[in-house]
Structure formats: C-alpha cells, structure tokens
Write a protein that binds this DNA or RNA. Structure first.
Length: 685
DNA sequence: AAATGACTAAACATCT
DNA sequence: TAGATGTTTAGTCATT
C-alpha cells in the first residue's frame, strides 16, 4: 500500500493501481485548476485545450514518477536487505515478509523532477544493487525523464505563449494566424506527448513484467480516465453535447495518423490484456458494438482494410461524426484529417470511455437484475413441479394456480407507470443502452430487431414469463389475441369472461385498465366477422371463423425476402412445427392459411400464431427507425392514458413475445383459468 | 393523398 | 336496478 502525498491531497493509503487512479485524478484536476471540470467548461477553446494538455501531461508525469519511486523503493529495500545481511540480521526478517506501507513522495518528485546524475548512476552501478534488467529499466526511465524535462520546458513556453495570446485576444480580438501557430505548436507538443506515452507504456509494461509493478488482477487496474463519481448518463450527455458542439464549431486540421492512440495507450497501459468496448452511440440504429482491442488498434488501418471499427456502411462512426465516406481510403483520409490527435479527439475519446464505462456498469446492473428476476421466477414456477422447467409454453400455461397467483405479486407495479424497462434476454443490451444514451425520450425498438435476433427456446419461455409478469404490452392485435385465446381452448370456444381471463392470465399488462381493454375486446369481437357468437345453453360463446380471419389481411406478407428469413428464424424455435409445414410456408409465403382445417390443434394454433408474428414482423421491418412510434405495433399501447398524452407509453408496447410459444398449450390449460377468481369456465364443459 | 387497419372512447341496447 | 354483454359509431394514428 502506498500513500499519496500529492500536495493538495489528504494522505490516503492506496494500492498500486489505486495510486495510479488517484494520480490520474490529480493530474486531471491539478491544484492550479480548481474548477470541477475545467476541460469541458465553457471557456475559450484555447483555455480548454491548455488545461487538457496539462492534464495529460501531468498524468504521464505522475505515472512516471510512480514508476520511478517504485524502482527507487525497491532499490532502497535491496540496499537495506544487503545491510541487514551484513549486520547479520539483528532484527527479525518480518519486515521483508510484510511490506510496510510505502510512502511515495510523489509531491516532492513532481515539484522537482530530477534525472539521476551520472554520479548517482555510477554509484548505483558500483553498488550492484540492481540486476541488469532493472538497470535497463532504470535507463529507460531516465531517458523518459529527460524527455519529460524537455517537454516541460516546451510546455512552459507554450503556456506563456498561450497566456500572451489570451491577453492579446482580450485586448485586440482574435487573431487567427497566431491561433493557427499555437495550434501547430500544440500539435507538435501532443506528438511528443504521444511518444512519451508510448515510452511510458513500454516502461510500465516492462516494470510489470519484471514484477516491479504489480497490478492486481481483481482490481480495476489503471483507470481509463478519471471518472467523476456519480457520473450519470445525463451528465455524460451534456458532456457529449459540449464536446460534439465543439466539434462542429471548430474546424481544426491536424495531420496525425494515430488519432486513436491515446485511447489505446490508456487502455493498454492499464491492462494490456483487457479489451475495451468502444461503442458508437450514434450507431445505435444498428446496435453495433465493436470489440476493440489494443492490439487491433495498434495495427495500421491498412492491415484491415474494410473492417475498421470506426467505419461502416460508408459512414464514419466516430462518435458524433457520421460523415459519409464513399470508400475506405476516403474514410482514412477523413479520419486522419478530422479525427487527428487533437484535444477534441482526445476529449471525445475520454467521453467515449466514460460512456463505455457507464454502459458496462449499466449492463452489469441489468444482468444482475435479470438474473434475480429469472431466479425468482424460476423458483416460483417450478415450485409445483419437480421437473426442470420446460422450454415451451406448457411450463407457463400449466403453472399451478398458486404459481399464477404468485406471479403478479412478484412484480409489484406502480399504478401509473410500468415497471422499469425490463429487458428480455433476447435483446442485446446495446440496443437499449445506446438509445438511452442519446435519446431523452422513450426508447424504441424495431420489431425487426426482435425477429432477427436468434433466440433460443429458453428465451421463449423467458419471454412468456416476461409477459406474464412484466406489464409490457404484447405486440399483437386484440383480434389475434382473442383468436389465440379461443383456439387454445379445447372446445375452440370461449365466453367473453373466459377471454378476459385468458388475457389477464397470459399478460400482466392486462391486469390493469380493465375497462379499456375489455371494451376493446368486446369491440373487436363485434367488429370482426371472424368472431362468431354462438348461443349456448348458459349464454353465448365466441368462436373463430378461420376463413374470415384470414380474409382479414390477405397476402400482406407475400414476396418479401425478409419475411422468409423471419419465418425461418421463427421456425428455429418452433419445435413442434413439422418440416413439411415449414416448407409449405416458406414456399408459398402465405403461411398456414389452411391450418384451421389441419385438425391438429397444436399445429393450427402454432401456425396461426406464427402467421400473426410474421405479420407483425412484416409490419415492422418496413418501419425503419421511427422514433415517434412503437414501430407500428399491430397493437397500439393500451394504457389508461392516451398515447398522445403519455408519450412514454409506446415504449412498453414493445417486446419480444413470441406467441408461437403459446400455441404449444397443454390440454388442461382451460382448467387453470381462474386467474381472477370467477371461473365460469367449467360451464362450457 | 387516400385507403386501410388498429385502437380507444363512448353511446346505446339487451340480458341476467 | 346494476352490471355484464353486445353493437355501433366516431376519432386518431400509423402504415400501405
């Protein structure tokens, strides 16, 4: 453990990596810059750049000093050991076993950075306290320090110039030429910084390799950047806005090939083996998430001609850029000109790092939540059954009464808003998180996403559970749902009340706002010819006229390649569907219009469900990136408040329920219908 | 731009 | 008479 003795810092015991982190904090907020976030403040651009350069330099400087101190410390220890050995060990060797809390005089070193003099070096050599490797490291370190001193001088000069220029600006307005000159100087300075960073990186690596510097694996090693505590997405957004606005405002032209090296250096110096996720928030429409390793970054772009993580679909994916580049060379040109190593790029990198960190944090949280939910639901749903949870709807439908009743309690909901945006596992986290990063409003997901994501049978069961317990509106029309309910019944007929019960049992969403959706159900029953009312002994039941139902939306899906794809992907998790049926569907593109006559209720239901799903898929593949609508769900949000009044609602209308799963019902399904108590259902039988 | 589908709301009628 | 059930109309929104 170390203690930071940075001039303005309270002494804190720190581990090695923490010390680095801490130092970086200091470097980012030096004593001379007391403003909380000086880099992104609305000061003049030059000031901003100065501060930033200062921060970077200080960080490198601090890291160097730490390394140096470590080395010296080791040196001292070895000297002590030697002395102890010579004095024949008057004291117990405890001190060697247990390392004392090292106090690194960083502040002293930083105030007076010194290169070891030749005499000192000679002394070291004479004493032979260091192994050849350590000596080599020391030499490298000395080189770095010398370079650093040069840099510092240069930096001082530059700062003087900047201050001068600021004064001039205050008095005589702006002078673009001088600005350019300063910018050029800054660029040169940054290049030097870069060299320093690389050197430093090598240095640290070698130190680490030789065991002089240990970064504990469990700990987050060197932080990618100083992340202010409690940084929330909105702050990040604000930060992002500021940076990107600076981007649009200024038109700096640099020419540095290694625009990403800063990121790389930070990442790799902290944890060489660690991969960092660089995600472009503006590429959220694709939900693209590119894994970006330091190694890859260190390669030249030419080695991977058309697989640059910052290039895709003819667009530069540098955050906030989206410039159209016709081909890869032009992209490279653009990258080098627009995203060269300058302060803006650096700032953007830092923001991006923060974004990634936040996303990772968020992902971890959501994963945890999901795990808890699944564990909870699994326990509940398997309570009545000893067998492992089946993968089809049977598991859900045949849930015992206790399980069904327990499930709504498992998800206590607020009266007005749905539960927190629950994320079914079938959806990549990137979709949600990215959109939430740059849209303030509701997150919209296209259904095409849902259908294109390959999901497993387990996911289906989870979706089913998801809709059963989460108040998320199922993306199906009332008509489809009613039909589904009726077809699932053994007699293919249900009373209105039974239909209600089915709704409430199958979808948590319909456990609220009964007046609204019940009215809608009745309305649909009356409106659509496909629903036929049949007088019974004890009232009336509703049946489905399949022919009429299929007349409803004729040929809507024919001839669309994506449909076939979707169909096939659907088939992937429709185990009961036989191959002939699949072939027929794929061939005719009019799936299962005759399934009602097939006699097999399971297949019939399944097929119809698939058809519904496919229709849904069709409807949504065309609605590309409509942020103001739920991707045109076949079923608009059913909520006590109107959509127009509650723009957040459509969000909950989306989610991946595959009704396919519901088709695989068990015969005793209708005996288990008393979700809401009143079981008039036995009447039919 | 018009047609269509889907949803919501509401009024009204009938039945239990 | 109240509530459930069933029918119809109107308005809105999104998609085709």
């Amino acid at each position: 453990m170390f203690q930071c003795v940075f001039s303005s810092s309270v002494l804190q015991p720190l581990s090695t990596s923490c010390l680095f982190k801490h130092l970086f904090y200091h470097s980012a907020t030096p004593a001379s810059q007391k403003q909380p976030e000086p880099i992104y403040s609305k000061k003049t651009e030059i000031q901003r750049q100065t501060v930033q350069a200062h921060s970077i330099k200080l960080f490198i400087f601090s890291a160097l000093q730490v390394a140096r101190q470590l080395l010296l410390q080791q040196q001292q220890q070895q000297q002590q050991q030697q002395q102890q050995q010579q004095v024949s060990g008057l004291k117990s060797p405890k001190r060697n076993d247990k390392q004392p809390a090292l106090q690194v005089p960083v502040s002293v070193a930083m105030m007076t950075p010194q290169v070891i003099t030749p005499q000192q070096m000679q002394q070291i050599l004479q004493q032979q306290v260091l192994s050849p490797q350590q000596l080599q490291v020391l030499l490298q370190q000395q080189q770095a320090l010398m370079l650093q001193q040069q840099l510092q001088e240069f930096y001082k000069k530059q700062q003087e110039q900047l201050q001068l220029q600021l004064l001039q600006q205050q008095h005589a307005g702006k002078q673009p030429k001088e600005q350019q000159q300063v910018a050029t100087q800054q660029l040169a300075f940054q290049q030097q910084l870069l060299q320093m960073q690389q050197l430093q990186q090598q240095h640290l690596l070698s130190l680490q390799r030789q065991g002089l510097l240990t970064i504990q694996p469990g700990q987050p090693a060197l932080p990618l950047q100083p992340l202010p505590q409690g940084m929330i997405p909105t702050e990040l957004q604000q930060l992002w806005k500021e940076v990107t606005s600076a981007h649009s405002a200024e038109e700096t032209t640099g020419n540095n090939h290694s625009s990403l090296d800063l990121t790389t250096t930070c990442v790799s110096s902290s944890a060489p083996s660690k991969t960092s996720l660089i995600m472009n928030p503006h590429a959220s429409t694709n939900g693209q998430l590119s894994v970006h390793t330091p190694k890859r970054e260190s390669m030249s772009h030419e080695e991977h001609p058309h697989s640059h993580p910052l290039y895709g679909h003819g667009v530069c994916k540098w955050p906030g850029c989206e410039a159209v580049c016709e081909d890869f060379p032009s992209f490279l040109k653009h990258l080098n000109s627009e995203h060269a190593l300058d302060d803006r790029s650096t700032a953007q990198c830092r923001v991006q790092m923060q974004v990634v960190q936040q996303l990772e944090l968020q992902l971890a949280k959501d994963k945890e939540r999901l795990q808890a939910m699944m564990t909870h639901l699994h326990v509940k749903s398997t309570e009545p059954k000893a067998a492992p949870q089946p993968l089809n709807l049977v598991s859900s439908v045949t849930l015992s009464k206790s399980a069904s009743e327990a499930s709504p309690q498992s998800l206590p909901h607020t009266p007005t808003t749905p539960t927190a945006p629950l994320t079914p596992v079938t959806q990549g986290p990137s979709v949600i998180t990215t959109t939430s990063m740059h849209t303030v409003g509701p997150i919209r997901r296209r259904y095409s996403d849902k259908y294109n994501v390959p999901i497993s049978s387990a996911d289906i069961a989870q979706n089913q559970e998801f809709y059963k317990n989460a108040e998320v509106r199922p993306p199906f029309t009332y008509a489809s749902l009613i039909r589904q309910a009726i077809l699932e019944s053994p007699e293919k007929q249900l009373t209105l009340n039974e239909i209600y019960n089915w709704f409430t049992r199958m979808f948590a969403y319909f456990r609220r706002n009964a007046a609204t959706w019940k009215n809608a159900v009745r309305h649909n029953l009356s409106l659509h010819k496909c629903f036929v009312r049949v007088e019974n002994v004890k009232g009336a039941v509703w049946t489905v006229d399949e022919v009429e139902f299929q007349k409803r939306r004729p040929q809507k899906i024919s001839g669309n390649p994506s449909l076939i794809k979707n169909m096939q992907s659907s088939h992937a998790y429709c185990t009961p569907l036989n191959a002939a049926l699949q072939a027929s569907m794929a061939e005719n593109s009019i799936p299962l219009y005759t399934t009602a006559s097939m006699g097999n209720p399971t297949l019939g239901n399944l097929a119809s469900a698939i058809r519904e799903e496919l229709n849904g898929a069709m409807e949504h593949t065309n609605s590309n990136e409509s942020d103001s609508s739920p991707g045109r769900s076949p079923m608009q949000p059913v909520h006590p408040v109107h959509v127009k009044e509650e723009p957040l609602d459509p969000e909950e209308a989306e989610g991946p329920l595959s009704l396919v799963t519901t088709a695989n019902h068990s015969p005793d399904f209708d005996h288990d219908r008393d979700y809401e108590d009143e079981a008039v259902n036995e009447d039919i039988e």
